[in-house]
Design a protein around this nucleic acid. Sequence first.
DNA 1: AGCTCATGGCGAG
DNA 2: TCGCCCTGAGCTG
Length: 269
Amino acid sequence: MPEGHVVHRQARQLTTAFKGEKVRVASPQGRFTAAAKVVSGKTFTKAEARGKHLFIGFDNLRWIHIHLGLYGKWQFGKGAQPDDTGLIRLRITAATNFAQLRGPAVCELLTASEMAAVLARIGPDPIHKQADPERAFERVHRSAAPIGALLMNQRIFAGVGNIYRAEVLFRHELSPFTPGRLLTREQFDAIWSDLVFLMTLGVKDGRIDTVRAAHLPEAMGRQPRVDRHGGEVYVYRREGMKCFECGAKVQMADMQGRKLYWCAKCQVG
DNA sequence: AGCTCATGGCGAG
DNA sequence: TCGCCCTGAGCTG
């Protein structure tokens, strides 16, 4: 259940493990068997991430497109595969490394043009160096929808999920309910560049940390907060706890079926 | 053992 | 906006 930074790490890990090797591809579960046979024995050229989408290239000709959705999970290892404790949709095996995937929302074989079509329907990804934030600004600038919802829209901000959404809004003292069209250019630019910073850091560290030095546990006289997601954050999943900035209780509400966390005192506007 | 919830996204209505 | 979906961790009891 990753946000974009995890998918980018997985792309890097797959590339490191298999680049340039002829790999065996199989689908023990059976739901991807026919496609797996098409690419099995071919050369793994590279794996790439865009937003939460992962593409694995074979001979730079065919691509396996994966989206983990809420449940998908990769397992990496060397040598023999462990006993399967679940259904393995996709297994990639080379001389020393293996990787196996269970529970993805999407696992399909695409041509280059089909892959281009997927890329065309997602917005700029803050982790991607060539991302064009103007595309996101145009959408935000003419939208009446709340910025908290726009940040979760993968056609606008690819790779942002529920944690980065909540945290970037807190860091910019912006209410999640602010209509997109009311954001100034300066506010949009600040949010975009902060997403680039935070998500790039997430790729490097493999966790989401958003708390500034002055608010870190050692400066606040408190224990580090080890959440399931494994990072130090201001508001995500801190409902009812004290805001590190102002001491007010962190709020939680439902926004379009997802839990939204924010500090109503700090985040005005 | 059973229930709830989760870093997500799709299509029906 | 709602229901649903391929999983598994963390609770409760």
